[in-house]
Nucleic acid binder design. Structure first.
Length: 358
DNA sequence: ATAGGGTTAG
């Protein structure tokens, strides 16, 4: 591969001398330009080549396509590809096309192409499968995600931890906690070593489901393996316990977090405040909220929305309105749910005259 | 592609 400076030298040489090299050399040049990220110029030379009646090799065409992908120029990619329709589709072309489809959000089309290629024995390799899997994770298509996971293993490509983390996260998001936990457990049997991120993802999933016992088991397991929970792991655990009304345990995790040197953040405070509010403890939430200003942790829209909703749920309209005014004064916005809760509360109370003052 | 994990609400 040419260095960038070599490409520049070649470019200026061609421009200043008007020298027209052999087509094969020009193809080489196109390849270098593409690999160096000079995609627009690569495309120009590529098109110039075609205009002189020469059809560039598959290798050259693929190199330009890959260049467009790496430079995230999808328009250029598809425009070029239109002009390549008659040329042969090889493995590299399939790899490029699937990646372009994934980047453009057309994961299902990418998957179709994968299946077509595999029928002909064209296996695009680990990274392409991984890209399809994360694409399907993003759109919440559990079935396809799982299919591809099995396919890639069948083709002897073993997903890395990153991919497994996405799979576990995707499964949890799609309420497939049992499957997610199975995959997590099978990881260890297969010889993978889940790291702190994967542990945190799984603990989060278990907490969401309310399976605190399993969550705690993993918590101690990761510590035993020498991994220290960080502020994210702590927050996941605190949130999980608060959600289930386990205030004492949540408090223990919270103070341990501080003892370990993790500072309180807006997020950790929001977790506590929303935890109190969802269990009819809005006054305790408010006490906690007041302490935030003392410790210098800035509240945000989430803090205020949680508090207002908490007060509304307990029909404490006056308190809710007070917090609402504070939110407005800070230039923050109430969420639709918060606003609806306030309106409902105001209608129920006698203070119908109290304006929400938009 | 040596990347990736958390908080409101329903």
């Amino acid at each position: 591969m040419a260095t960038n400076s070599a490409v520049k030298a070649a470019k200026s040489f061609l421009n200043t001398t008007g020298f027209s090299p052999e087509p094969t050399l020009l193809e080489q040049y196109v390849k270098c330009l593409s690999e160096d990220g000079l995609v627009e110029e690569a495309v120009d030379v590529y098109n110039a080549l075609k205009e002189t009646g020469i059809s560039p090799s598959v290798v050259t065409s693929n190199a330009v396509l890959l260049g467009c992908l790496k430079a995230r120029k999808l328009h250029l990619f598809w425009e070029l590809h239109k002009g390549m329709m008659e040329s042969e589709v090889d493995l590299e072309r399939i790899r490029c096309l699937i990646q372009a489809l994934c980047d453009g959000g057309e994961v299902s089309e990418g998957y179709e192409l994968l299946k077509q290629g595999l029928k002909q024995g064209l296996d695009p390799g680990h990274d392409v499968y991984a890209k399809l899997i994360s694409g399907f994770c993003k759109i919440g298509n559990y079935a396809c995600m799982s299919e591809i996971l099995h396919t890639m293993i069948a083709w002897n490509h073993f997903p890395n931890l990153y991919t497994y983390n996405e799979v576990i996260k995707g499964l949890c998001k799609n309420k497939k906690h049992v499957e997610a936990f199975c995959i997590f457990k099978s990881l260890k049997e297969k010889g993978y070593a889940p790291d702190r991120v994967v542990y945190t993802t799984m603990i989060h999933g278990l907490c969401e489901k309310g399976w605190l016992g399993s969550a705690r088991k993993l918590w101690f397991e990761m510590i035993k393996k020498g991994m220290q929970p960080n502020e994210l792991t702590y927050n996941v655990m605190i949130h999980g316990h608060l959600k289930r009304g386990e205030f004492v345990l949540a408090g223990e995790f919270y103070s341990e977090m501080l003892r370990k040197g993790y500072k309180e953040t807006t997020v950790s405070c929001n977790t506590v405040i929303s935890g109190f509010c969802s269990h009819g403890k809005s006054d305790e939430a408010f006490e906690f909220f007041k302490k935030m200003s003392e410790t210098g942790v800035a509240p945000d829209a989430i803090t205020y929305n949680a508090l207002i909703q908490g007060f509304c749920k307990e029909n404490k309209v006056e308190k809710g309105m007070k917090v609402y005014k504070e939110l407005k004064a800070l230039g923050l916005k109430p969420s639709v749910v918060t606003y609806a809760a306030l309106v409902r509360n105001l209608k129920m109370s006698d203070s119908v005259e109290t304006s929400l003052n938009f």
